[in-house]
């Protein structure tokens, strides 16, 4: 028993001594030290999706702007506020939060810490609806993306690559505006190339929200039935449901198109038939906002990033040169505003 008491005594002494040796870290409270912190949604930093792409943008800020960067992975939604204030209390200059779910915690923190700039990735700011800029929180910008433009690009690509004249799209749900914009942008892009093109577009609206994005079997079945009807390009959008469609298309050896990030890296089983992906360009969007924050030109309200399409990777040789040229022209047109998708922000 004596030994036991001894061990407990040592443990207690060690616990008391611990706070005495404080760790050394770069002092972000100094004016000349520029620090950027990122809080993930409930997920990992290397999710090959939003968290990872945003973190790559933050890493670029480290390289290009000499920023001190750091991230915190969130394991439980009740930690959002605490994780944000961990950075805020350490004197960070910019805090990036990833995902819609952090919207409220981010807005509350922005009010609490008016001297820190907050970037909310994929967090649509409600007040611009009434177009009154005075309602904005001055130090908070929501980084959003023109999903319709990304969808438009891959729609145009699909319409140029199809041989049967029939293309398909399998999506999570039209209730979530970004998903709907991907789908309708796809439709608009395809019809821009071939007005009479035969389109199969299906949203998985028939199930609960927890299933709409996590139903790869349904995605695969739906894609397969479109292929049976003659579709030879399939665009899958909406979490695992869309991934199911993309993988099914690749297995049937028809062209597949991914969504959000370059899915060549996230869906290795679809690589050989993955034509492209409709991308939200999170990495440059994040970097751009961090730059604006550093230069003192930080915008408030909604900041629109860019949409794009991923490289053709393994299928590069199968894409004719004139299609590549056309795609670049469409992309340039969408970027400078001379070409419009005519897709409204939310489903009317």
């Amino acid at each position: 028993m004596k030994r036991l008491y001894g061990v407990i005594a040592v443990l207690l002494v060690a616990a008391l001594l611990m706070p005495a040796c404080a760790p050394k870290a770069p002092d972000c409270t100094k004016a000349d030290v520029f620090c950027v912190g990122m809080v993930t949604d409930v997920g990992k930093i290397d999710d090959k999706s939003f968290n990872q792409s945003t973190w790559e943008g933050v890493k670029l800020a480290e390289k290009e702007l000499g920023a001190i960067v750091q991230y915190l992975e969130t394991t439980d939604s009740k930690d959002y506020a605490k994780n944000i204030s961990t950075f805020a209390d350490a004197g960070y200059d910019v805090i990036v939060t990833v995902g819609f779910a952090l919207g409220e915690a981010t807005a509350a923190a922005a009010v609490q810490y008016p001297n820190i700039k907050f970037i909310g990735v994929d967090q649509f700011q409600a007040w611009p609806y009434d177009e009154d800029k005075t309602n904005d929180i001055a130090n908070l910008a929501g980084l959003n993306f023109p999903e319709d433009q990304a969808g438009f690009l891959v729609g145009a690509l699909a319409a140029q690559m199809t041989k049967s004249g029939k293309i398909g799209g399998v999506f999570g749900t039209d209730v979530v505006p970004p998903v709907w914009r991907f789908g309708e942008g796809y439709r608009a892009g395809a019809q821009y190339i071939t007005p009479a093109i035969e389109l199969f577009i299906v949203y998985h609206n028939d199930v609960g929200f927890d299933k709409t994005f996590t139903d790869p079997e349904w995605g695969a079945t739906t894609a397969n039935s479109m292929i049976d009807k003659g579709a030879d390009v399939i665009f899958g959008g909406g979490g695992k449901t869309g991934n199911g469609a993309v993988i099914a298309a690749a297995q049937r050896s028809v062209y597949a198109i991914g969504v959000d990030t370059d899915q060549y890296y996230t869906l290795p089983e679809a690589q050989k038939m993955l034509l492209s992906s409709a991308m939200k360009l999170l990495t440059p969007g994040t970097l751009e906002l961090i730059k604006l924050a550093k230069e003192g030109k930080f915008p408030s309200g909604n900041y629109l990033g860019k949409g794009g399409y991923a490289p053709y990777h393994d299928l590069d040789s199968q894409v004719p040169a004139e299609v590549k040229t056309k795609m670049e022209a469409i992309n340039a047109g969408l970027l400078d505003g001379s070409l419009l998708t005519n897709v409204p922000p939310v489903k009317p």
């Binding site: 870290a25 750091q70 991230y71 915190l72 992975e73 394991t75 439980d76 930690d79 605490k82 961990t86």
Partner: peptide, 15 residues
């Protein structure tokens, strides 16, 4: 569970 945040912040060891 609570201290994990600061541990991660100081060391970047996954939670």
């Amino acid at each position: 569970r609570n201290g994990g945040t600061r541990m991660q912040f100081l060391t970047q060891i996954p939670v």
